[in-house]
Design a protein around this nucleic acid. Structure first.
Length: 748
DNA sequence: CTACCTTTGAAGGCT
DNA sequence: AGCCTTCAAAGGTAG
């Protein structure tokens, strides 16, 4: 007889028989016993019952595993235990007062179909199949209490029917420890699950112990999930309850869920959240967290560290100026890595409750808070070198003493060539510019006096460092400016002392998140205003900014005190740069063999040579060309570059030096010339040789862009310098106008 | 717990 | 203008 036939037979039997009016009557009918308060079920005999099929076809409810054969006496049955009694005692389909499931019709054990996954046959006793509970699936109910902190699988102790913890061990001797689902407590009479005990004390490890038996009890953080449920052996029993809303101050406050809540209050700070903070967040430690919209990504708010405070008191990341981690939440996160170069933090398990917040701790917290508001100086070139070299020297010297290491690194630093140091000056400049961008109002005096003043041994200090000091002073007089395209010598050392570098007013308004800087020199020796002089970032071999050719010293142009490209013109130039850079760094122009084309051209920034050259040209074409003592890098141009140039160089152009014939433009054409016209003449097709298609397209586009530029104040006030003798004019050389492509060559 | 040591460079104050 | 002081990093050490 297969299962289906068996079930049909059962149903027919049940229907054909006269249904008992009550459960008690049914028990009497079946068992012939009236003394038993609840009749035991006629549990099947003979054939071990296999797992039952789906629901009862007749009742639609539970399927009993009852078999036609008479059931053995109750005392012979071993049945699954549920709660405080055998599971088969329950007969009602709905839950009883204890929430236990009952069979709809028969007062017999009925394992509901949907519960069969939680039981499995474990054998027989007196020809009665025995069932035991299997490990239920992980609870999906988010309201379930957390797993009990024990080595044993706590899930197994959950009652799969009710979501409560099973306590069937109460009616039986404690199983071996290896089979325990919960911590056990040894009492005088039995081994009892620890969670049954109440009012525990706390041992040295913070574990809760039973006051009488000194056994592990209910951990403190679990007590909210239990409630008194009676007594056993004069010991109060506890049952698990649905955990209350997390109100434990020791636990982190809940994060807002993905959907905007009624209240936009930040659970961390109690402040109102901006709407961007309530957007769905990617799961971080299975949490939904507030989000921060950066320029590049949407990042969970808690990823940000070292926040500062903005005007609204919101903590912000010092580098990204976004809302960061509230101060009272920092104890719950720890660094786990980086994301988008941003320190990433993850949640940590809350520390056990500390008894008292000691003054010492408060002092540390206060210091940390101060540290977060403290904006450090950007590192200088040596500091960057030191940071890079310290691990190496540490390994070489096999020492960790920073003082000794620093001395060695300092010595190595002084032995480096300028070219070798240039790399670190470049990095330092980048760092400085980024620092200035992110903290436009910060200055070094902000940190002045914040550190403890050091009482240096002045005599020894001066004696030991006199030589480096002089070097430093000498070096301080050197103007080190970033150059382009030559990584090994990306700095051109200028002997002319720099004016006090002004904080570029345009940098802070840059639309680029990318760090970008142009070293702007002062063209006005007496200017107090942030007057800028463009220092074209050009190959050092092609541009000479020595004192004799210094823009500041030799420019006869009437310059306004206010730099024009600090304002709208600057933005216009930037716009042009943004469009020109990708154009001119296209494949046709990317000639790796050419020293004129550097690897950094892909970066659209103020450091772009296009921008710098344009700025100089736009501000002072006269100065721009005057400083080019020789035609720009003809000798360096590789053969593969020639095809894209508009002209073929004449033999004498390869070595000439600022000869009038090859001056970029004649005084005649410089007169009354706007920058756009100037550039127009540069890139216009010459009669000498047709341009390559690529260059032609580029030239046209550049012209179109540059022609859109409104002449700036410089150009308006531009007065040509005195005509230099020997310059050839278009009129004097109409047959073949001198190729004025040096500007573009200068750019690249 | 805090300052110091030790280096170079940048920046600001002071004379 | 030149000099002086402070602070960036960093980890051991001394008070």
């Amino acid at each position: 007889m297969d299962i289906r036939e068996e079930n049909n037979h059962i149903s027919e039997t049940m229907q054909s028989e006269e249904a008992p009016s009550t459960s008690e009557d049914a028990a009497v009918d079946i068992l012939g016993q009236t003394s038993y308060p609840l009749p035991p079920p006629p549990f099947p005999t003979g054939i071990p019952a296999p797992p039952q099929p789906a629901s009862d076809p007749q009742t639609g409810g539970f399927v009993s595993n009852i078999l036609p054969e008479p059931a053995p006496p109750v005392h012979q049955q071993l049945v699954p235990l549920m709660g405080s009694g055998p599971a088969h005692l329950y007969s009602q389909p709905a839950t009883d007062r204890q929430g236990q499931l009952r069979h709809p019709k028969l007062n017999v054990v009925g394992i509901p179909d949907n519960m069969r996954q939680y039981v499995h046959p474990v054998g027989e006793l007196h020809d009665v199949p025995l069932w035991d509970f299997v490990t239920p699936p992980p609870p999906s109910n988010p309201q379930l209490p957390p797993s009990f902190p024990t080595g044993a699988p706590a899930q197994s102790s959950l009652d799969p029917w009710t979501g409560r913890f099973l306590s069937h061990t109460l009616l039986e001797p404690a199983p071996p420890v290896s089979q325990q689902l919960v911590p056990l407590i040894l009492t005088n009479t039995a081994t009892v699950p620890a969670h049954l005990y109440s009012q525990p004390g706390t041992d040295r490890q913070g574990q809760l112990r039973h006051p009488e038996h000194n056994a592990l009890g209910i951990p403190d953080n679990m007590r909210q999930y239990v409630r008194p449920a009676g007594e056993l052996h004069d010991v109060p029993l506890w049952d698990f309850v649905t955990p209350p809303p997390p109100s434990n101050p020791q636990l982190p406050p809940p994060f807002p869920t993905g959907a905007p809540t009624q209240s936009a209050l930040d659970p961390w700070t109690g402040r109102f959240l901006s709407h961007t903070l309530l957007e769905p967040a990617p799961p971080v430690s299975q949490q939904l967290v507030p989000l921060i919209l950066t320029n590049t990504a949407t990042v969970p708010a808690h990823l940000y560290s070292q926040p500062g405070t903005d005007r609204q008191g919101q903590l912000r990341h010092p580098e990204h100026n976004v809302v960061g981690i509230p101060d009272n939440m920092r104890q719950y996160v720890h660094p786990v890595g980086e994301l988008h170069d941003v320190p990433v933090r993850d949640f940590v398990v809350p520390a056990p409750p500390s008894n008292i917040s000691t003054p010492k701790k408060r002092k540390c917290e206060a210091r940390q808070y101060e540290d977060r508001l403290y904006i450090k100086k950007p590192p200088n070139a040596f500091m960057l070198y030191l940071k890079e070299q310290r691990p190496k020297v540490m390994a070489e010297l096999n020492t960790t003493g920073s003082a000794a290491i620093n001395a060695v690194v300092g010595k190595r630093w002084r032995s480096l060539s300028k070219d070798q140091q240039a790399k670190y000056f470049d990095q330092a400049e980048t760092e400085s510019c980024r620092h200035a961008t992110e903290h436009p109002d910060w200055s070094t005096k902000e940190n002045y006096g914040k550190k403890r003043k050091r009482t240096r041994n002045r005599t020894s200090s001066t004696a030991s460092a006199s030589e480096p000091k002089q070097e430093a002073q000498q070096a301080k007089r050197l103007c080190v400016t970033p150059a382009q395209t030559q990584p090994s010598s990306s700095y051109s050392v200028v002997k002319e002392p720099l004016k006090q570098p002004q904080r570029q007013p345009t940098v802070t308004n840059l639309p680029h998140q990318q760090s970008a800087c142009v070293q702007l020199q002062n063209t006005q020796t007496t200017a107090d205003a942030p007057v800028c002089q463009v220092n074209p970032v050009l190959p050092a071999s092609h541009m000479d900014f020595s004192a004799s050719a210094s823009l500041a010293s030799s420019a006869p142009v009437q310059l306004q005190k206010e730099a024009p490209f600090v304002s709208d013109t600057n933005e216009a130039l930037l716009s042009v740069v943004e469009q020109l850079d990708p154009l001119l760094t296209s494949e046709q122009f990317q000639q790796p063999s050419s020293p004129l084309i550097g690897p950094q051209l892909s970066q659209t920034s103020l450091a772009s040579p296009v921008y710098c050259a344009l700025s100089t040209l736009y501000a002072s074409p006269d100065t721009f060309f005057k400083n080019q003592k020789e035609p720009i890098g003809f000798a360096d141009i590789q053969h593969d570059i020639w095809p894209i140039l508009p002209v073929t160089p004449q033999p004498d152009t390869l070595s000439c030096s600022n000869t009038p014939k090859y001056s970029p433009i004649s005084p005649f054409s410089l007169e009354n010339s706007s920058p756009s016209k100037l550039l127009d003449s540069f890139v216009a097709p010459t009669e000498c040789q047709p341009m390559s298609p690529v260059f032609s397209e580029t030239a046209k586009y550049m012209m179109s862009l540059l022609n859109d530029l409104e002449p700036g104040p410089f150009a308006q006030h531009l007065q040509p310098s005195s005509p230099q003798a020997g310059w050839s004019s278009p009129e004097s050389d109409q047959s073949c106008r001198p190729p004025n492509h040096s500007f573009l060559q200068t750019l690249y």
